[in-house]
Amino acid sequence: MSDTRDLTLRVNGTVHHVNVEPRHSLADTLRESCGLTGTHLGCEHGVCGACTVLIDGRATRSCLVFAVQVEGSEIETVEGLAEPDGTLHPLQQAFWEHHGLQCGFCTPGFLMLALGALRENPDLDDEELRDLIASNLCRCTGYQNILTAVRAAADIMRAKARPAPNP
């Protein structure tokens, strides 16, 4: 029963050839076969959200998806968030400045959750943001600094997305 399959996954724009059992979750595959250990597993039953990644742009629990299901999809993980030169994404920068993390175990999940949701709707109001951030669990921060950070990042991301006015 432990038959394995050869899969081709696209993660952060890079192609990975992996060989896994069908029962291998996307999270385990990213961590063990792609060497991308930034995606963390906190519960493996879809509640904590530490494993949240983007699949074709949608924020998804990677513990509840099997790798075999996502051939042909675009996967994005926390490792792809910063610029290649190391410049932090506005979300990362805001989490840093607003102390939105302590142990950092939940942080990749929150970053990817916020990234997916803000891409879908850059104009989330505070109430919608709180609903969204309630999707994942953090045991250290008490959440307020995460909310503050995502709010700040959303404002920066919106300003950046707006075309520059003509001089």
């Binding site: 250990t37 930034g38 490792e79 910063a82 989490f95 840093w96 102390h99 950092g104 175990f105 942080t107």
Partner: peptide, 17 residues
């Protein structure tokens, strides 16, 4: 802001798993 954070923010923390 904490010196610990950049690695944790970029998925380059080193947890036991």
């Amino acid at each position: 802001p904490r010196l610990e954070d950049p690695a944790l923010l970029t998925g380059r923390g080193q947890f036991v798993a």
